[in-house]
Design a protein around this nucleic acid. Structure first.
Lengths: 138, 138
DNA sequence: TGTTTGTCAACAATCTTTGTTATTTACTAT
DNA sequence: ATAGTAAATAACAAAGATTGTTGACAAACA
């Protein structure tokens, strides 16, 4: 995800306005590696702006997803998780505490042999590793 | 997933009763490769038993998941999908029509090097390939 | 066949996400 | 700086998926 200044430029170019709410959400997402849910971002935003609404958070997140600045991920935890790391990467999830870590795995991405692709034109491969993290492993 | 007879035995051994509703759901899942949602299974079941409730479907599915007979999968489509193929496998999803295909990829499963595992004790790797299927590719 | 205990259907409730709308605010051109 | 306008906001309702609750019912087993 780009800097607040660049995002501001991008939004304005797209006919969108820059509001304090959006700037707040941009800041919360910057360098955030916790894969927060919309609710978690809402809670963080409320610390700064106690009147912000959850709908505004969803709307801004969806806009960031649409322009490819963040990724929306679903790991079956009940709510979508958002990731400002929009480069090609994979995930490592602790089955005990639920924490999600990014994995940069350029070489390991398995290419699907065409004889197994069942006629599909494959464009993306996501790998999710599940296991127990250090803290939960006792 | 095992046969209806074996599931009956398993359920009884687990102190669970075998009802017509459960047998109906077992049959619907047998050899089902469509990755149905709970709602889809509910619709299929209603053709045979018009009084069956959605709650019963969910309850039986959850029990089958608990004993490892089926897999519950979340691909971000809004609802969980259920898969009677409980052997280690991966998935191929059409980004246009949403159909999901199983992929048996024993050898291609990428082993995560321990230096990248961030201390996790990894137990499972799921790969999701996304692309366009033959029918949607025009 | 009767008794026990788990299951069922019906309904309500919860959780996440999206739709609606009147009001406010950011941007633009004066 | 100011006014006009188009978009964003907060508040609220609504939708969709899943789970909780409960009294009636039926499967299992003696």
């Amino acid at each position: 995800m780009r800097s607040e200044a660049e995002l501001t430029k991008l939004f304005r170019e797209g006919g969108k306005k820059i509001t304090p709410q959006r700037q707040c959400i941009f800041r919360i997402l910057q360098d955030n590696q916790t894969h927060p849910s919309a609710e978690a971002i809402f809670d963080a935003a409320r610390l700064e702006m106690d009147s912000i609404s959850l709908k505004t958070v969803y709307q801004t997140l969806n806009e960031l997803v649409e322009i490819g600045e963040i990724l929306s991920l679903d790991f079956g935890t009940g709510a979508f998780r958002f990731d400002p790391n929009n480069s090609a990467h994979h995930h490592l999830i602790c089955t005990k505490c639920g924490q999600i870590r990014d994995l940069q795995l350029a070489n390991l991405v398995p290419e699907l042999p065409s004889e197994l692709a069942q006629g599909f034109r494959v464009s993306k491969a996501e790998v999710t590793y599940r296991g127990i993290c250090v803290r939960c492993d006792n």
